[in-house]
Amino acid sequence: MILVAAALVIWALGWGLNLTLARDGVAETRAAQIGVPVIFGITLLLMWELIVRGLNVPGVILPPPSAVAAAFAKNGHILWQDFVQTILKGALSGYIIGCAAGFVAGIFAARSDFLRRGLLPVGNFAAALPIVGTAPILVMWFGFDWQSKAAVVTVMVFFPMLVNTVAGLAEPTAMQRDLMHTYAAGGWQSLRKLDLPAAMPFVFNGLKISTTLALIGAIVAEFFGSPTVGMGFRISTSVGQLALDMVWAEIVVAALAGSAFFGLVALVEKWVTFWHPSQRG
């Protein structure tokens, strides 16, 4: 009971600290902008730890963060292998193939009005579908190893990428096109100097949406069959063994990988589309 009371005290302390940090004058500083969410996160972790220990929640229902950290440290080698198998081999290769294919298909579709009218609704329709459901089929076709995961990811990221590329290439105004025309720019030149740069904010939007989709696809596809390595495999087998600390450790890896992946793409976006209003802030 003491631990639970301590958790409530910590909650009050953390919230009080955040309240002072969120006052006018302080809240605008960079330290407060970063500090407040960090304090909130730490408070939640401490409360989780104390309440789980205080109420004696069994580890097969909710392990405390310390147990998760211990599992993370102890199984570093396994987690690394799973990371390589699922993220680097499955998700990343599928992401690159799918995004490249979607981008190229988008460029072609945008050149013809007929194709754009036909492909965009179909692409939008497909982008909203539960494409994860193709996983059992693709696992059957490409086998249990990472190739089938890459295939699932390719299919998942293709349509968002296609739709965003086509939308981006429609961005230049008639005025801008006329300007290219007065420069006597050829099709390739105006594509390279006008259309592609103008499409970049949309393309990066597609790339960012696709990062999450890629991880989802790679992990979920492993639920339908995988070699004895991989994050989805580890999650489903560890759940079966009720080793929930290991499951949470995998989820930590997935969270870190997901935000790092997204952050990387956002960084490249900042560098490529530095001219866009949303980046100049």
Binding site: N18, L21, A27, V36, P37, G232, I235, S236, V239, S259
Partner: peptide, 21 residues
């Protein structure tokens, strides 16, 4: 200030991995 950054970050992680658990 405390919740919003986490809500945004949570969009970038495959929370579906939690489903089996």
């Amino acid at each position: 200030m405390s919740v919003m950054p986490w809500a945004i970050v949570s969009q970038t992680i495959p929370i579906i991995a939690l489903a089996p658990m």
